[in-house]
Simulated scan of single mutants.
Amino acid sequence: MSDPGISVVICAYTEERWEDVRAAVSSVRAQSYPALETLLVVDHNPALGARLEQAYRADEGVRVLPNSGPRGLSSGRNTGIAASHGEVIAFLDDDAVAERDWLRRFAEAYADPRVLAVGGRTEPAWASGRRPAWFPEEFDWVVGCTYRGLPPGRVRVRNVLGGNASFRRTAFEAAGGFATGIGRDGGPRPLGCEETELCVRLARARPDGVLLIDDRAVIHHRVPHARENFAYFRTRAYAEGLSKALVARSVGADKGLESERRYTTRVLPAGVARGLRDALLGRPGGAGRAGAIVAGLLTAAGGFAMGSLRARRGAYAFAVERRPGREPA
C-alpha cells in the first residue's frame, strides 16, 4: 500500500495561545514524514482568524478557516475533516508540539488496511518545570496526557485520545463525525470524551476495523500553572464523570465504560498502593498521590452520577454529523 497523504487539523480558539499555536504549526512543518496540509480551524474568534490568516498568508501548506458549525471542539474538528484532502486526518492540540517522527509513526501503522485510527503518546510539559509531587501519573488524562495504565508499544485499544490522534477518512464515512454536545464547547466546564464516543461508534460500524495506539508517536502538551493545582484536578475529574455519562447514554454502558472498569478496579488501586508504599519509605508526595487518586475517583463518580441523572431527564442534547463531507476542490 502506498504511503497515505496526511492532513493535520489544529483547532484554535483564543489569542492567549498565539505562541502555542505557532509552535504547533512549526512542529508539523518539521515532520520527517511531511504533512499534505495543515488546517487551522478557528472557533468563532474572527480576530484570531484574521491574525492567523495574516501570519500564514504566504504559506501554501497552511490554511486558516472558521469553524462552520456550533462553538466547540467537535464541530471544529468536523470542519477540518470536511475541508481536508488527505486519506488520513490527524489531530494535534493547539498547545502541543509534535516530535519529528509523529506522522511517520502514524503512516507506518496505516500500511495495514484494517487500521482505521491511530493515536500516540502525549507527554506533559509542566509550566513549573516538573510534575507536582502530589499529582499521580494515573490521572495525567486530567491535563490531556497519556496516563499510567495504558499499554506500552503499538497495541489495539478501544479508543484513541483526541489531542494526539489520526483517523482514516473512511472511518468518518462509516461512522460519521465527532458528536456535538459532548466535549469542549467553549464553556467553563472542561468536558471531554468526544473521541471515545466516536471510536465506540466506529467499532460498531466497522467491527473488522483496528484502532491502535503507538507510543512512539509522541507529542508534548503544555500544562499551564492554572492546571497544576488540586482545584483544577477536581474540576476536570468531575467534568470527566459528566462526559462519561453522556458516552454511556450514546453508545451504551457496556462499551462506553469497558476500559474504565479495568482502570478503576486494577490501575487505580495499584496506584494507591504505590503511593502509600512511597509514603512509608519517606519518599516525597506518596501520601498526596494516594489521596489524589481516591479523591479523583470519588469526584469522577459523583460527576457520572449527576450526568446520568441529567441524561435521564433529557437535560443534554447531542448530535452526530453523519458524514463530514469533503469540500469541493
Score class of each variant (00 low, 15 high):
residue 259 S to T: 05
residue 322 R to W: 03
residue 286 G to I: 01
residue 117 A to F: 13
residue 170 T to Y: 02
residue 33 Y to W: 13
residue 152 P to R: 15
residue 53 E to N: 02
residue 249 R to F: 05
residue 159 N to T: 08
residue 308 S to V: 05
residue 105 R to W: 14
residue 243 S to E: 13
residue 145 C to L: 09
residue 310 R to N: 04
residue 188 P to F: 10
residue 41 V to W: 11
residue 176 G to R: 12
residue 45 N to V: 00
residue 209 G to V: 06
residue 163 G to H: 11
residue 82 A to R: 09
residue 33 Y to R: 13
residue 209 G to N: 02
residue 92 L to D: 03
residue 233 F to E: 00
residue 42 V to W: 06
residue 292 A to G: 15
residue 68 S to L: 08
residue 114 R to P: 03
residue 218 V to P: 01
residue 70 P to K: 12
residue 102 W to G: 02
residue 20 D to W: 07
residue 54 Q to W: 05
residue 123 E to A: 04
residue 13 Y to R: 11
residue 227 R to K: 15
residue 296 G to H: 10
residue 57 R to I: 01
residue 58 A to P: 01
residue 237 A to F: 00
residue 64 V to L: 01
residue 324 P to W: 03
residue 22 R to P: 03
residue 154 R to I: 13
residue 186 G to K: 10
residue 200 V to F: 00
residue 152 P to W: 06
residue 158 R to G: 14
residue 234 R to C: 11
residue 317 A to P: 00
residue 232 Y to R: 01
residue 103 L to Q: 09
residue 95 D to K: 07
residue 280 L to P: 00
residue 319 A to I: 02
residue 65 L to M: 13
residue 17 R to Q: 12
residue 26 S to W: 10
residue 302 G to V: 04
residue 303 G to T: 06
residue 272 V to G: 04
residue 73 L to C: 08
residue 298 L to M: 06
residue 305 A to L: 15
residue 297 L to F: 14
residue 111 A to I: 00
residue 298 L to K: 05
residue 105 R to C: 08
residue 160 V to I: 14
residue 319 A to Q: 06
residue 225 H to P: 00
residue 36 L to C: 03
residue 268 L to H: 07
residue 103 L to W: 14
residue 246 L to D: 03
residue 251 V to G: 00
residue 269 P to D: 10
residue 144 G to Y: 07
residue 300 A to S: 09
residue 316 Y to K: 06
residue 258 E to Y: 15
residue 10 I to R: 09
residue 69 G to R: 06
residue 222 R to K: 15
residue 218 V to A: 02
residue 265 T to F: 03
residue 127 A to M: 09
residue 271 G to M: 10
residue 34 P to R: 01
residue 328 P to T: 04
residue 180 T to Q: 08
residue 117 A to D: 07
residue 79 T to V: 03
residue 195 E to C: 13
residue 101 D to V: 05
residue 231 A to Q: 11
residue 181 G to Y: 01
residue 116 L to H: 15
residue 39 L to W: 09
residue 189 R to M: 14
residue 177 G to N: 04
residue 215 D to H: 14
residue 35 A to Q: 06
residue 47 A to Y: 04
residue 146 T to R: 07
residue 93 D to E: 14
residue 86 G to A: 10
residue 24 A to Q: 10
residue 106 F to N: 09
residue 61 G to Q: 11
residue 27 S to A: 07
residue 225 H to D: 02
residue 137 E to Y: 07
residue 291 G to S: 04
residue 91 F to A: 11
residue 272 V to W: 04
residue 268 L to C: 02
residue 37 E to M: 07
residue 252 G to L: 04
residue 244 K to Q: 12
residue 160 V to Q: 04
residue 266 R to E: 14
residue 2 S to M: 06
residue 216 R to G: 14
residue 138 E to K: 12
residue 75 S to E: 03
residue 26 S to L: 10
residue 152 P to I: 13
residue 224 P to A: 08
residue 262 R to N: 14
residue 36 L to Q: 14
residue 324 P to R: 00
residue 164 N to I: 11
residue 239 A to S: 05
residue 140 D to C: 11
residue 226 A to Q: 13
residue 119 G to I: 08
residue 247 V to H: 01
residue 315 A to W: 04
residue 110 Y to N: 12
residue 176 G to A: 05
residue 289 R to S: 08
residue 304 F to K: 09
residue 328 P to E: 08
residue 165 A to V: 08
residue 247 V to W: 05
residue 147 Y to R: 15
residue 233 F to Q: 02
residue 36 L to H: 14
residue 86 G to M: 09
residue 213 I to V: 15
residue 170 T to I: 12
residue 20 D to H: 15
residue 258 E to Q: 13
residue 215 D to G: 12
residue 302 G to D: 00
residue 8 V to Y: 03
residue 244 K to H: 10
